[in-house]
């Protein structure tokens, strides 16, 4: 059978390899930094309801609408997750539902087009300046 010293040696080697792998993967694990600038993740209720969080692409909408249309005419506040949007309001024609009703844009039956985020992500504007500050802002 294996001697005690051999077991110690083997476990030390395994530990070194694990540390190395962890170090290297932590260097490369910066996926969120690749998010398109201005992408908003909204996860007020999604996770709890068993849906993926919503990813809102600002860039896509900006090509078609000036900021005023959503942020003045439709009443969206300048705050990620600050509008307390839920599906009932959208069915009722508020917020996203003003356009996403199969007349201006595709309708709410296309769940997976909005609810497309990685589960358990926080509500925030990804890749924003405050997001990229190394020291997180005190909440």
């Amino acid at each position: 059978m294996l001697g005690r010293r051999t077991i110690v040696r083997l476990s030390l080697v395994v530990a070194y390899v694990l540390i190395a792998v962890l170090c290297v993967t932590s260097l490369f694990n910066d996926n969120e930094a690749k998010a398109e600038y201005g992408d908003v993740v909204i996860n007020n209720y999604s996770d709890a309801a068993g849906m993926r969080p919503v990813v809102f692409p600002h860039w896509f909408h900006r090509i078609r609408f000036r900021c005023k249309v959503c942020h003045a005419d439709l009443g969206f506040k300048f705050k990620a997750g600050g509008n307390d949007i839920n599906m009932l309001k959208i069915f009722d024609g508020q917020f996203c539902g003003r356009c996403h009703n199969n007349s201006i844009a595709w309708g709410v039956e296309n769940c997976v087009l909005c609810h497309s985020g990685v589960p358990n992500m926080k509500t925030r504007v990804h890749n924003s300046t405050s997001d990229r500050l190394v020291a997180p802002v005190a909440k």
Partner: peptide, 16 residues
């Protein structure tokens, strides 16, 4: 591949 969209989500590949 952007880190915020879930590659497992069927809608992700339909997005522009």
């Amino acid at each position: 591949e952007d880190g915020v969209h879930d590659p497992q989500n069927p809608g992700t590949t339909m997005l522009q």
